[in-house]
Write a protein that binds this DNA or RNA. Structure first.
Lengths: 181, 181, 181, 181
DNA sequence: CATGAATGAGCCTTCATTCAT
DNA sequence: AATGAATGAAGGCTCATTCAT
């Protein structure tokens, strides 16, 4: 899986062949098939693997006793920082997003669990009347997704985001999800 | 190009073969090559084609004499509506985003021009002190991107968004880009 | 046919497509098929065409009243010179030789006739006891073929042949076909 | 390579497809690509392979202590005989000649070495004043090339060469390269 | 368990030939 | 007679997957 991730990051989704993965991993082609059903399975498992790393990175340094705004801020910046990780889980984000995804219930419950800290943040915020009474998924799209989106554009050079703009974008996201009289 | 678009929407970027395109279009394989240099060229041209349709759909029923909020609202809902278009430009959005893109200056100027109404909206808003003084690109990510993102999730069934939620999301996006005392 | 010859000389046997020929000739693709049965026929006819030009070039400035040696010498040098012709019949020689050839009797009789001056030279030489009593075809291989072979190698740079060597080679060919007590 | 050689001999350079080679060799198409980079590489390697067989056949039964004329005679007849080899290296000669050739120095040195016996023959002959003082390459064209050329024509039926004629042609070639008073 | 040679369907692209205009 | 768009078989090559060792 490490090999696959590296190749995906370096060469993109095309040009990912099982023989390349095998060579990079230092094993024979056939060996892969003892641990993964087929290519699709490898990609699925990689998705899960990366997703849990992403979840870990997003929620690191966040504890449930921090103030809500503080938690949001930390997560938002964690997402931003993820793009610069040397050990590249998200550099792949571009690629990662279109990894084939299972759409099973199990999968959704897994994601639910991985991002429970995020959900807790949103639930508490709504309970306090601080956040808008929207579905967590929607709050996520409004409040956190833009961080990933901007980071990606920043990284690919489509758009330069300086520190001040980044801070303003963070605040704007907060504005999006909080109640305004 | 219509055939390509359909196949892209149905089967995704991978598994798009020239043979399939030809069959779907009801022509012989070789015929494609009379109108497109190669597969890459077909994809590039398709990108341009869709982009201009997207621009047209996003900005339809928007005129520069409408109030700012009204313009924003119309665009946001246009984006939302795009996902339901029978003749599917955005169903592909998921796929569309990773169509190979030329990154020439020309291309960027073209995009600039196609979305000039959007840019004008943002510029006026900033001039009036109504909108936050951020780069248009950033405002776009904060204010409009979530519409596409939610519509996509709604359509794929990952998330159900009722009319009230949609309205709330729209307002939240407006909150994100406007100044607050 | 002129177009075909040019393309053959420039790009070789591969990369000779009917559409290229048409474009070079300034006509539509289909037009070719009004004048030639198919590609093979075009090539056959081109072969004949070039062969007659070759015959003309080989035997130019040769008349039956010249001394035998003089005639031989002229032909040998004509062959050598052919390689340098601007209007390229033989530059193609490399390519020309593996143009598809019909092997009919007619064809052989045609060639017989085209090179009648050569045959007359050999017949007279044998009658006078000056040349070896061998089949004309064999005399041709021994006496004239080497000129083409050397010129080709000289032209492709495989081998440098200066004027003195060329003269010596000519004499050696004469030695090959003449009687030696 | 054996399959390629056979197909080349039977159907010529054009009309040699990797699929055909695979079928003839009794393997799958893809298998070829485990042993050869691509078609060009296959042809290059085949060229080398055949060339070394040709060199071996041309110089077999020739040792440096044999009289010069004897050596020449043996080689000349070896070349002639090559055309009749069941296991067909030279039947291809026609085709063989226009196999794509690398033109590297290495290649030339290899050829030099393969045919060193021929070069030695010519060098000794010139040293003794028996042969004309010409470049070895030229002597080769004058003295040995005609053997291949005649054999080829004989084999394709263009020309019938009986034993006596063959002997005379051999002598004529000797006349071509030797000094005369 | 691990190997890696072998497989063969499938991909992109070319091009000789046809035929409605 | 000329056109040139359309055809579709075939070509070179890749790669997910299998299986005998």
């Amino acid at each position: 899986m490490r090999a696959t991730e590296k190749l995906l990051a370096d060469y993109g989704f095309h040009g990912l062949s099982m023989q390349m993965v095998a060579r990079e991993a230092g094993v024979a082609t056939g060996t892969i098939y003892r641990y993964f059903e087929d290519k699709q399975d490898l990609l699925h498992q990689l998705y899960d693997h990366i997703l849990s790393r992403v979840a870990q990175l997003v929620t690191q340094n966040v504890t449930d006793d921090m103030p809500l705004k503080e938690r949001f801020r930390t997560m938002w910046l964690n997402i931003w920082a993820m793009a610069y990780q040397e050990d590249a889980p998200l550099i792949n984000r571009g690629q990662f997003e279109n990894l084939p995804r299972r759409n099973t219930l199990e999968q959704q419950q897994l994601e639910q669990k991985l991002f429970s800290k995020v959900h807790r943040l949103f639930e508490e915020g709504k309970a306090q009347g601080l956040l808008k009474p929207l579905d967590n998924e929607i709050l996520s799209v409004l409040g956190l997704e833009p961080s990933a989106c901007l980071a990606r554009k920043h990284l690919t050079g489509v758009l330069h985001v300086d520190e001040k703009s980044r801070e303003a974008a963070l605040e704007a996201c907060w504005d999006a999800i909080t109640q305004h009289d």
